[in-house]
Amino acid sequence: MGLNDELRKLAASRWGEGRMRQVYNALAAFLERTEAAKHTLKVGDTLPEFVLPNAEGRLVSSRELLAQGPLVVAFFRGDWCPFCNLTLAALEDALPRIEATNARLVAMTPDANGLAMRAKHRNSLHYDVLCDIDNGVAMQFGVVYRVPDAYRKFLEDYKCDLEARHGNDMWTLPMPSAFVIDRQGVIRYAFVNGDILVRAEPDEIITELKKL
């Protein structure tokens, strides 16, 4: 069963066919209509250079990463999102096969305050989780959106305080997405979808890495 099957299964067990499913369907239709995910970095674009702290508090730079081989960058929202956790775990399962292509994998979250380490622990990850402070790198990838007031209220009702998690009052989130970058820093694969249940299959990432 692929990651996307698992995401749907998790959603089915959580949501059933009730109101949440209807809202989700309406959302999917809206994002389709507004083509939200179409204006991000694309195949052929250059990786925006970055240097970010990892979960362990070390600085990691894109240049150092690319010096070691191709790079996979996965944006996720935070360990408050069960679908992001599932995705991080699926990438962990695929890590030996990713590294067998000499590639490096990093995940990025706007969560600060040590929460990157918590995401790493909770999902037993062995790849770097980077703190994209204030979504500065995600902005350059074009995957950032502002959390609208209704959703913000929903998050606040569930005590998910993005202000405290991110250390800013911007209320922005990245769309979950994955990019494969070759050693020259050129994006060779880009997967962005506004639908939180549709994500890059690790197998597809590995197929792309093998082409490099």
Partner: peptide, 9 residues
């Protein structure tokens, strides 16, 4: 958990 995202600007 949180179950959906939202259309956004």
């Amino acid at each position: 958990g949180l179950w959906y995202d939202w259309p956004t600007a």
